[in-house]
Simulated scan of single mutants.
Amino acid sequence: MTGELFFTLFETAVGCCGLAWGERGLVAVQLPEGSEEATRGRLERRFPRARELAPQEAPSGIASARRRIVALLDGGSDDLADLRLDLGRVEAFNREVYAVARTIRPGETLTYGEVAARIGQPEAAQAVGRALGRNLWPIVVPCHRVLAAGGRIGGFSATSGIALKRRLLAIESVHAGGPPTLFDWQRAG
């Protein structure tokens, strides 16, 4: 079964997500695309040779990862830092950025500049942003916890963009750019 890829879809508090994996670990986490069909289609385009498995057919490690992600998106505090990722095709700089991002606990944030400083390249804030924009494992590599200078929300490469980033942060009780407004609470629900 070497080289085979699989994926599964599952419901979360933010919509239908997906996990793709191979023998070396998770190859991707797919955030909601608006519907189960759209999320499935995105995974099928990204991994055309991957075979879909129902959640109950997934190996125990993937089933555990799925349950933990669901719990986190329900307001849990699991940092998911021990989940195994297949980083084989990730360039060295991005690996460093992802390693720092994985140390950010739920409910906490760093800025792009702080991540750059932690990897020893304080001038590389924009490169950190680009690396996080290429993140294949959102939630597990919590790029939503990295903000622009001054606590501004910054960008987010998911289909629903910064609206989803705000929602993820609200689930974790983080309110970028100041305290929540009535509209933030309505969007998070």
Results as ranks from 00 to 15, higher is better:
Asp86Ile: 09
Leu31Arg: 09
Arg167Phe: 04
Pro142Gln: 09
Thr109Cys: 01
Leu132His: 05
Gly41Lys: 14
Ile104Arg: 10
Leu132Asp: 04
Leu26Pro: 02
Glu172Tyr: 10
Leu132Ala: 00
Thr111Tyr: 05
Gln121Val: 05
Gly25Met: 02
Val128Trp: 02
Pro122Asp: 05
Gln186Ala: 14
Gly150Lys: 03
Glu57Gln: 09
Pro138Lys: 10
Arg105Gln: 15
Ala176Trp: 12
Leu9Asp: 07
Arg152Thr: 09
Ala158Asn: 07
Ala92Met: 08
Asp184His: 11
Leu132Tyr: 00
Met1Asp: 08
Arg24Gly: 05
Glu91Tyr: 12
Ser35Arg: 11
Ser35Cys: 07
Leu31Glu: 10
Val100Glu: 00
Ser60Ile: 12
Gly25Val: 05
Gly3Arg: 14
Glu33Lys: 15
Leu136Asn: 12
Glu57Ser: 07
Gly25Ile: 07
Glu23Gly: 05
Gly3Ala: 12
Arg102Trp: 03
Tyr98Arg: 11
Val100Met: 01
Ala116Leu: 14
Glu96Ile: 06
Ala116Ser: 14
Ala170Leu: 09
Leu136Phe: 12
Ala148Asn: 09
Arg68Ser: 03
Arg51Ala: 03
Trp137Val: 00
Cys16Thr: 15
Arg152Ala: 08
Gly34Phe: 04
Leu110Lys: 13
Gln56Phe: 14
Asn94Leu: 04
Arg67Val: 00
Arg68Lys: 12
Pro59Val: 10
Ala158Trp: 00
Phe7Pro: 06
Arg67Gly: 15
Leu19Tyr: 03
Lys165Thr: 06
Thr103Pro: 06
Ala158Cys: 05
Gln186Ile: 11
Glu91Gln: 13
Glu57Arg: 04
Gly151Ile: 09
Ile69Ser: 01
Pro138Ser: 07
Gly120Val: 01
Phe183Asp: 13
Ala65Gly: 10
Gly178Glu: 02
Arg105Gly: 11
Cys143Leu: 12
Val146Tyr: 04
Arg102Ala: 00
Gly75Leu: 07
Leu164Thr: 02
